[in-house]
Amino acid sequence: MNHPARLAAAVLTATMAVLTTACGSEGGDSPSDPIKGAGSGDGKTSASPSASTSQGGVKRPEITLSKDFQADFENWTNSDPKLQAILNDGREQLRAKYAAVINADPNSEAVAFYSSEATRVSARKWINQFVEDDNDIMGKVTAFDAKALISDTGSGVLFYCVDERGASTQNRKTGKVVKTPDKPESVLQYRTRLDKTPQGVWKTTSVTVVAGGCSR
């Protein structure tokens, strides 16, 4: 079965099975801790096609997207290094899932690197939807309006929006292209929580995706 592209939402229950209308969650509750710091992007950057970094002495996996798929990250910078680290690892967690779909690899090491056990399981289910339907992703998504916070418990909180209206799925065998509907529901809001590992990696521990949660 061919689904219209809903590149972000993890579909976990039968009531969420239609990607064009569903909201998804990846483990845990939506972030709601009181915050002691807040920031949004103050510049404009685009993620490189391949991002292999060694921040804080930690070697991060190289993530490469195909030439047919582009993920732009607008206003994804912050003057606070702690909040920038949350932005960086939150961005790479999303890019890792896109790359896993492109590579038809539900067991992606990069997804595991940036995800907790709970979000890794649900991300694998989401990736498998594309693998089982033999679908690739193409076109462009734009992530914008990122806001990084640090809660009183020390967890990171990252809210951002993803506009999927420029993206499509393409069946690898038939070549059939299904474009993401040009509707408000195709602009998603991500509400994510991240926890810092002893090695200094901000792993995503919960994700809630709200269809139509942002406007653009």
Rank of each mutant, 00 (worst) to 15 (best):
H3D: 12
P4Q: 11
R6L: 07
A8L: 15
A9K: 01
V11Y: 10
V11S: 14
L12F: 08
T13R: 11
T21D: 09
G24P: 04
E26Q: 13
G27L: 00
G28A: 10
G28C: 05
D29S: 15
P34N: 03
S40G: 15
S40M: 14
A51T: 07
S52F: 01
T53S: 08
Q55E: 03
G57V: 00
V58I: 10
K59M: 00
E62R: 06
T64N: 10
S66M: 00
K67R: 12
F69L: 09
D72H: 07
E74M: 11
N78E: 09
K82E: 14
L87H: 08
L87F: 15
N88Q: 12
G90Y: 04
L94T: 13
K97I: 07
V101P: 08
V101K: 02
A104G: 06
D105N: 15
E109C: 02
E117R: 12
S122Q: 11
K125H: 06
W126P: 00
N128E: 12
N128L: 10
Q129S: 09
D133A: 14
D134E: 13
I137R: 03
V141T: 14
F144D: 08
D145V: 01
A146T: 06
K147L: 07
A148M: 05
L149Q: 14
L149N: 11
I150H: 01
S151Y: 01
Y160G: 06
E164T: 08
N171M: 07
T174P: 06
T180D: 07
K183I: 11
V187G: 02
Q189C: 04
T192C: 09
L194T: 02
D195Q: 13
T197H: 02
T197D: 04
P198C: 05
P198L: 06
Q199V: 03
V201D: 00
K203S: 00
T205P: 04
S206F: 01
V209S: 13
A211L: 06
A211G: 14
A211Q: 09
